[in-house]
Structures are given as C-alpha cells and as structure tokens.
Simulated assay, not measured.
Amino acid sequence: MRIVILDNVYSPAEDSWQTAELLSWIVGNYVSNEEPRVIDVGSGTGVLALTALLSAMNKGRVAWIIAIDHDRSAAINTRINLANNGLYQYADVVSMNVLDAIRGGVRIDVIVSNPPYLPGSWDEDWRIFGGPDGNNVTRQLITHACGGNALLIVLTQSSLSNWEETTKLLRDCNYRLVMIKASHYFFEDIITMVFLKVNH
C-alpha cells in the first residue's frame, strides 16, 4: 500500500492500523457477498478504503467502496492514494458530512470509521477532537447508521470518549458487539469494536 499524506490530513497512526486490521479480517473472512459494499466514514488518506479493497481482492473478489470525508483535502488525498495504488475505479469518493447523502435501505455490508474521538473542540483540531465528550461525531454516525441496513459497523474510539455509550446506542437499534480489540497508548486505550446487525 503506497500512501501520500497531504498537509492538514490526519496521518495514519496506531488507531488507523488497528481499525484496518479488524476491517481486513471482516472483509476477508466474514462478509460472504461476492462484491462487498463498504462505506468508509472519515476516509482521511484512504487507508481504510484501500484495506477493504485489498482484503476483498486477496479473496478473489471486488469490493464496492464509498469513501466519505467532510474535508475536501482529505477527499482529494483519498483519491490520490486510490489512484496511486491502481484502485481508483473501485471507489467513489464523496465530500460530505458523515452519512448525510446515503439513502436508507441500500444494502451495505460494512460501515467503518476511525472518527475524531478525543474530548476537545473541533476549532482546535477537527482531525482528532470529537467535541466536548469526544463522541459527537460517533453519535452522528450511529444516528444515520441505525436508520440504514448495514450488516456490520466497525468503530474506533478512545477510552476517554465513553465507548460504553456507543455500545448502548447501537444495542438499542439491534446491533450486537461481536468483536473488540484494545491497545494502550500513553494516557488512553484505543478501542476498535465490531457490531453485527441482529435479524439482518
């Protein structure tokens, strides 16, 4: 995977690679559709979109990807990295807020996101801070996702941003936590969770 990082775009870090690891396993081993449909929310450099595509291709399949970022520079960065890896034709890159333009009822296999999750003001750094509690973006995503029909949701959060609330909100709209990975870095745990739609 060849990655170019533009100025002001979140550089892939431990949380990105942890999310990519679980996403790769999910797309490669769990999703049964021949053409997995994946939405990457907050695509940044496009690492997660690329991971989904490469994981599907390693199994002899082709994935259908929508990569979303509200920041134009990030959307451009995602496009550049898809093109540099010869995968641009397999993805649509959209600049919009969370899942605003995705129609409800469309079949989606996986929604994946490593959103800004640290408690703090967007005005300070919107790439890492997710509002006063750290989970404002995550709540927006869950609100949209619960109105849709995704089979799996892969989300990364910090132990500082009330990940337990995320599990409750998703449980309330019929998603069950089926996999979790946590890694400790400095002052926090990075937690990546996989949720499965019950009675999909």
Rank of each mutant, 00 (worst) to 15 (best):
T143H: 14
L54V: 12
G60S: 02
S32C: 12
R79F: 14
R127V: 00
I76D: 05
A83H: 15
T51R: 05
W126F: 14
A63C: 11
L141I: 06
E14A: 08
Y10W: 08
G44N: 03
A13Y: 01
Y30C: 08
I102H: 02
I66M: 14
A20S: 13
N85C: 10
Q140K: 13
N77G: 10
D125R: 00
N81D: 08
D125Y: 02
R139F: 01
L53T: 02
P36G: 01
D92K: 10
Q140P: 02
G60E: 03
T51D: 00
W126E: 09
D109L: 09
N29Q: 15
G104R: 15
C146Y: 03
V27T: 03
G120S: 00
G28Y: 05
A67G: 04
N135V: 07
Y117C: 08
L99D: 08
G130D: 00
G46L: 06
N33D: 15
R37Y: 02
G104I: 04
V94L: 08
I111F: 09
S32G: 09
D133E: 08
R79W: 14
I76E: 08
Y90A: 11
P116G: 09
W126N: 09
H70C: 12
E124A: 01
A83R: 14
R61A: 13
A52R: 10
D100K: 10
I65A: 05
E124S: 01
A75C: 09
H70P: 12
I76R: 15
I102C: 03
D125C: 01
S11M: 05
V98I: 15
S11N: 07
N29F: 14
P12E: 02
A13S: 07
L141K: 02
W17F: 15
A150V: 04
W122E: 12
S55A: 15
T138E: 06
P115H: 09
D15Q: 02
D100G: 14
I65T: 06
P132D: 02
A150C: 08
V47N: 06
D133M: 09
T78K: 14
Y90C: 10
D15H: 00
D15K: 01
R107M: 12
D100V: 11
D100I: 05
P115S: 10
L54S: 09
A74P: 11
H70I: 11
V93E: 04
C146I: 03
L54T: 11
Y90S: 10
T45E: 03
S32E: 15
D69E: 08
I68N: 12
A83S: 13
K59C: 14
W122T: 02
Q89G: 08
